[in-house]
Amino acid sequence: MSDTAARVSARSSSNARPALLNALQVGLPAVALLVMLVIIFSIRPAAMSYFGFHLLFKLSVPLVFAALAQMMVIMLGDIDLSNGAFVGLITCITALYLQDAPALALLCYLVLIAAYAGFGLLIHSRQLPSIIVTLGMSFIWLGIAVILLPAPGGAAPVWLAAFMSWQPPLMPLSIWLAALAALAGHLVISRSSYGAVLRGAGGNPRAVERAGWSVIGIRVTVYASAGLLACLAGLTLTGLTTSGDANVAPAYTLLGVGAVILGGGAFTGGVVSPVGTVIGALTLSLAGSLLSFLQVPPTWQIGAQGVILFLVLAGRVLLSERAR
């Protein structure tokens, strides 16, 4: 609480400081990402190539989209515990229908995104805690996915798998997609005037309401876009794994939350950074590779990931303290 108060007062007292703080918030995970890459390249110089980057970041694409979906919800001061289960459901639908019945698959996506928006409406109109509603939603997504596809299977459409293994010029596809997603997010959320309203709806919904905006409309829009982004995560994940699995992505829920916070977001609502979130997601997905490059024994790898999370976030606290 006092942290937010300090941040707010810092914001109003001068303009240079928040800019510096913002730069630090995005900069820190970026520095962490660079440090990890330097360590990996010093161990295995051969990884410093187009193909090396391709392998290192291949699996980060779905996480980037899942983290952006989570970011939309966190922006409103809510949290989405159903994100990972939803991605799993999308992989099932994609692997089952997209190849043979694309119209049906598209209809499913639309219905599910509408359902996401509907739950946003429910949360808003009954003033429900998002944590428990999205917890319930996660069971619903998982249930539908298991009904559709009781055991992992199905097949990704050929074009989707081909797209995910496409090697575009200059940079690997994963980096292109991450950069485009970060740019789009930055333009819409951080730069546009509508983005300011969206963030305002998380930070101070009353003020936004009094300014003539419909906060219900905003929440429905934001939840729908979170559903859309999670859909993209599921599609890209299916392209990578080439099959559907209800239980493929439960970890995305909390990894996504981690990426948003690493990227400078706050649970208080209204404070998020799309660029930071994308870099945070890349950092988290690279952490796994880094640990295997460092030959950390498998039994310690999960723990070491926790330690990395602590280190990066501790750096953020130290830096923002100095900036103040």
């Binding site: 939350v257 916070i261 039994t299 310690w300 999960i302 723990g303 990931q305 926790g306 602590f310 976030l313």
Partner: peptide, 23 residues
């Protein structure tokens, strides 16, 4: 000490505890 949101702090610790139990 790190002024972390509880969700993140307890999540990071849970990774560490999981590793300890595994070992």
């Amino acid at each position: 000490a790190l002024r972390l949101p509880p969700i993140i702090a307890t999540l990071a610790w849970s990774f560490v505890f999981q590793s300890l139990a595994f070992n």
